[in-house]
C-alpha cells in the first residue's frame, strides 16, 4: 500500500473513532445545526490563521471556540430560535471566511481542499495531530460522559440533582470545536457534520445503551472511511465526499427491515 493511502486510512479512522461517540451526543442533543455552524466558521479560522502567519489549525480552534462561546451567550436570547441564530452564524462566518480567503491570493490555497477535505494529502505531522488530538478529545468526552448523559436525558432533572449544567454544556460545545479542528483535513468544512451525525444515526437501531451506540457509531465511521477511500481509489472520486456518501449509504441500509433470528 502506498504511504499516502496508509496515512489517509489511519487519519480517517482516527477521526471516525472520536466523531462517532461525539456525534451520538450531537444527535441526542439535537445539535447538528450547531456543529454545522462551527464547521462553516472553520473556514474563517483557516483564513485568519494563514493571515496571521500561524497554523490554520490554531486559527480554526480560535474561531470555533469564539463562535461556540458567542452561541452560548446568544442562547439566552429569547427573540430568535436557536436554528435561526445558528444559520446566521454559519453563513455569516462562511461568507467572511470566503472573503478572507480571496484576500490571501498571494498565497496559493486549495479552497476546495478546505471545503471538502484533502485526506489523501495528509502529512505525517497532520497524522500526529489527528491521532493525538483525537485521543485527547476522547479522553475529555469520557470524563464528561456521566454529567453530559444526565443533562442529555433530562436537563431539569439533572439540574435539580446537582449537575453543573452550564459548565457541562459549555465543555461539550468546546469539545465539538476541537473535533472540528481535528476533522477539518479529512472531510472539510462542508462535510464534517456528516462524519458526526450519520454514523451515530446509523448506529441507533442496533443499540440498547448509550455506550453501545457510541461504540457502534465509531465502527460505522471507520467503515465509512475505509469504504469511501476504496470507492475513491476505484472510481477516482473525491475522497471526502466519497466517505460522506458511504456513511449515507450505511445509514439507509440501517433502516432496512431485519428479520429477527428465531
Amino acid at each position: 500500500m502506498d504511504d499516502f493511502i496508509l496515512r489517509a486510512v489511519l487519519a480517517g479512522i482516527g477521526v471516525a473513532l472520536v466523531a462517532g461517540p461525539m456525534g451520538c451526543f450531537v444527535v441526542w442533543r439535537r445539535m447538528s445545526y450547531f456543529g454545522a455552524a462551527l464547521a462553516h466558521s472553520a473556514l474563517l479560522g483557516v483564513a485568519l490563521g494563514l493571515l496571521a502567519g500561524i497554523s490554520p489549525t490554531i486559527g480554526i480552534i480560535v474561531v470555533c471556540v469564539a463562535v461556540a462561546l458567542l452561541m452560548a451567550g446568544l442562547d439566552r436570547n429569547r427573540l430568535f430560535a436557536a436554528d435561526t441564530l445558528l444559520g446566521i452564524l454559519a453563513h455569516g462566518t462562511l461568507a467572511a471566511g470566503l472573503i478572507a480567503m480571496t484576500m490571501l491570493q498571494t498565497v496559493r490555497i486549495d479552497l476546495m481542499g478546505y471545503l471538502f477535505g484533502d485526506i489523501l494529502a495528509v502529512t505525517r505531522a497532520d497524522l500526529f495531530w489527528i491521532l493525538g488530538g483525537g485521543a485527547a478529545c476522547l479522553a475529555a468526552l469520557a470524563a464528561l460522559w456521566r454529567p453530559l448523559l444526565a443533562i442529555t436525558a433530562h436537563e431539569e432533572l439533572a439540574r435539580v440533582e446537582g449537575v453543573a449544567v452550564e459548565r457541562t454544556r459549555l465543555a461539550f460545545m468546546l469539545l465539538i470545536a476541537f473535533v472540528i479542528a481535528v476533522a477539518m483535513k479529512i472531510v472539510g468544512v462542508l462535510l464534517i457534520v456528516s462524519l458526526l451525525i450519520i454514523p451515530a444515526a446509523a448506529a441507533r437501531r442496533f443499540s440498547a445503551t448509550p455506550e453501545a451506540m457510541a461504540a457502534l457509531a465509531a465502527v460505522f465511521g471507520c467503515l465509512s472511511v475505509v469504504g469511501g477511500l476504496a470507492a475513491s481509489a476505484r472510481w477516482d472520486a473525491p475522497a471526502g465526499p466519497a466517505i460522506a456518501a458511504t456513511a449515507t449509504v450505511l445509514f439507509f441500509l440501517s433502516l432496512l427491515p431485519v428479520r429477527r433470528a428465531g
Binding site: V27, W28, A153, H154, A201, R204, A208, T209, P210, A212
Partner: peptide
C-alpha cells in the same frame, strides 16, 4: 426521553 437516546 428522546427516542434517539437508547436508555433503559
Amino acid at each position: 426521553i428522546d427516542a434517539t437516546l437508547p436508555l433503559t
